[in-house]
Amino acid sequence: MSGPAATAARFRGWPLTLTLAAVTGLSVGPFYWLVVGSTHKDTEIFDWPPHLLPGGSLGENLDHLQAKIGLGRVLVNSLAIAGLQTAGALVVALLAGYAFAKFRFRGRTVLFALLLSTLVVPEQVMLVPLFKMMMSFRLLDSYQAVVLPGLCVPFAIFLMRQALGSMPDELLDAARVDGAGELRVLWSVVVPVMRPVLAALAIFLFLGSWNQFVWPLIALRSPEMHTLPVAIATLHGSRTTTDHGAILAGTALSTLPMMVLFLALQRQFISGLLAGATKG
């Protein structure tokens, strides 16, 4: 197609292109400013016009962050808590989802309905009883206090139950006929088939655990046990002048584990999200 018709077709595509460009700019712009701001001194961050190119103070900001909150220690705390919680929640979701989807037992429907009903309970409502429970178990100010409440995630169990419900029973029966026990069936048959769903779920669980703030703030009392979001929050008001450069550097650094995890599981993540759409 050439001539006036081709020109008209190109002009008709411009509104969509400009709209997508504007939406992309609104989405990427704050993150770009966060990265650029983390490389400037505290006194330069609010200059006008703003700095749009990276500066040379990233190392200085990270040094300030290390001196004030112990950057290495809080990173280890966050990674340990998020990793343990994600792995444990995946195991619980897989086992519970498998039981709800593939076994028939008395009270299954009632139990599943009760599980789903917890989705509408606000997290803030559970803070006081959860605090009393951890205090009675003498688990406050420990990894267990943060990890254990996040092992049972109703949404994760629901997602695994729905995904496993579409898995043919013939595959499981064939493995049982060959003499495999339930754990062997789960590991050798279910896990390979559910790998995309597990990868997508792992990203959601890790993101939720990594960004968790309110409960770690309550349960972890000593600065040595703080996670990265809690430690960064303590920088506000710790001095007469807040070190915004250090805060921006810590916030930018907190996005790296999620980016690495997403890039590592990108294919499985997309496959997991499209699994339901590709079934005939």
Rank of each mutant, 00 (worst) to 15 (best):
A8M: 13
Q85W: 07
L116H: 01
G150K: 01
V110P: 09
S117K: 05
S188I: 11
L220V: 06
L228A: 02
A156Y: 00
P168G: 11
W14R: 11
K279F: 07
G59D: 03
I69F: 07
K279L: 09
A175H: 05
S78D: 08
W48Q: 12
V147S: 00
R138H: 15
F206L: 01
A233M: 06
L140R: 08
A22D: 07
S166H: 13
T43P: 02
G237E: 04
L235K: 02
F137M: 13
L220Q: 05
G3P: 06
Y143C: 05
G107R: 09
A175T: 04
G72H: 02
G280I: 07
S136F: 10
G179T: 06
A89C: 05
R106W: 13
T109R: 14
V193I: 15
G280K: 03
A180P: 07
V110C: 11
M259V: 12
A174W: 00
I203N: 00
I81V: 12
A219E: 07
G37A: 15
Y143N: 09
A67G: 11
V74Q: 06
S136Q: 14
V185S: 05
G179S: 04
E60P: 08
W187F: 15
A163F: 08
Y98R: 09
G208D: 00
A5K: 13
D63T: 12
A264V: 09
L261W: 01
P223M: 10
V28P: 02
M135C: 10
T109G: 14
L127Q: 11
M167R: 06
S238M: 14
A99T: 14
A145I: 04
R108Q: 15
E123I: 14
G25T: 11
H244W: 14
N77E: 02
L198P: 00
W187N: 11
P223A: 09
A199E: 09
L16K: 07
L65N: 02
V185G: 03
T251Y: 02
L90Q: 00
D63M: 09
W215V: 05
I232Y: 03
A6Q: 11
A252Y: 00
L261C: 04
L140M: 12
T251V: 09
A22G: 13
L65H: 02
P216Y: 03
G276H: 06
V197D: 01
A174F: 00
V23M: 15
R267V: 11
Q268W: 12
A180N: 10
A67W: 07
V74G: 03
F31H: 01
T86S: 01
L265V: 08
F103K: 14
T39M: 10
A8N: 13
R221L: 12
H244N: 10
A80F: 14
A80W: 11
R267W: 07
R221A: 10
S238G: 13
L256E: 01
Q268L: 15
W14F: 12
